[in-house]
Computed example of a mutant assay.
Amino acid sequence: MLAMECEFLAKKFDRFGWERERNTPAQDRLMLDFMDALQDFPLPEVQAACKAAVISNPNKMPNEGHVRAEIMRGRAQRVRDLPRSSLEPRAKRGDPANADNILREIGFIPRRICADSDQQGAK
């Protein structure tokens, strides 16, 4: 599917006379580079990035670097759009003053060793 995205872009811009280059090592290499650079991204994200790359620079054939940059810009924007937490930051896990609260929060109530044997049985 990534190879098809590369072909769609190339046909839009008629890069290097794309049809004349069909089944040549040069065209195969262009497609392999495109696929290698974008293989780790979901297809809908690649498709959206291809559209964004064409819109942002309509006079230039986007290459895999342009598409990848658009993917990264889109991801950064989605992270920026996430709602910010209004909660105060939690106490650090290593804070001894907060240790009992942390243990209760996760549902663990430890048995305490006490000097008085009567108190130990009560706990």
Results as ranks from 00 to 15, higher is better:
74 G>C: 01
35 M>P: 00
47 Q>H: 07
27 Q>T: 12
18 W>N: 02
95 D>M: 01
80 R>V: 00
48 A>R: 05
92 K>A: 10
63 N>L: 03
48 A>H: 03
32 L>S: 12
34 F>Y: 09
36 D>G: 06
116 D>S: 02
95 D>P: 00
89 P>D: 14
38 L>C: 02
101 N>E: 13
13 F>S: 02
48 A>E: 11
82 L>E: 01
83 P>H: 13
96 P>I: 05
54 V>L: 02
55 I>F: 08
75 R>Q: 14
56 S>R: 15
123 K>M: 10
110 P>E: 05
82 L>C: 03
114 C>Y: 10
40 D>A: 11
48 A>Q: 08
25 P>A: 06
97 A>C: 06
89 P>H: 12
74 G>Y: 01
107 G>L: 09
32 L>R: 11
37 A>N: 06
91 A>L: 13
107 G>V: 04
73 R>N: 03
11 K>N: 11
45 E>C: 05
78 R>A: 11
14 D>H: 10
50 C>E: 01
36 D>C: 05
38 L>I: 04
39 Q>H: 10
36 D>Q: 13
118 D>G: 03
74 G>R: 00
34 F>Q: 01
101 N>W: 09
2 L>W: 12
72 M>R: 05
99 A>R: 15
103 L>K: 05
29 R>W: 12
118 D>Q: 07
1 M>W: 07
96 P>T: 04
9 L>N: 01
122 A>G: 02
69 A>N: 10
18 W>C: 06
30 L>V: 08
81 D>G: 00
27 Q>I: 08
46 V>L: 02
82 L>K: 00
5 E>L: 08
68 R>A: 14
62 P>C: 09
53 A>G: 02
38 L>H: 09
19 E>R: 10
21 E>D: 06
49 A>C: 13
49 A>Q: 03
78 R>C: 05
97 A>W: 03
109 I>C: 01
27 Q>C: 04
79 V>C: 01
97 A>Q: 13
80 R>E: 04
81 D>Y: 00
61 M>K: 04
102 I>C: 00
67 V>F: 07
3 A>E: 13
105 E>W: 13
22 R>C: 12
32 L>E: 14
58 P>C: 05
77 Q>V: 00
55 I>Y: 04
81 D>W: 00
68 R>S: 12
88 E>Q: 15
93 R>M: 05
81 D>S: 04
2 L>T: 12
110 P>N: 01
33 D>T: 08
75 R>G: 00
71 I>K: 00
48 A>L: 10
120 Q>H: 12
39 Q>N: 14
115 A>V: 04
116 D>K: 09
28 D>K: 09
58 P>L: 12
18 W>R: 12
25 P>M: 03
31 M>N: 01
105 E>F: 14
33 D>M: 07
3 A>V: 10
83 P>K: 09
121 G>F: 14
104 R>I: 09
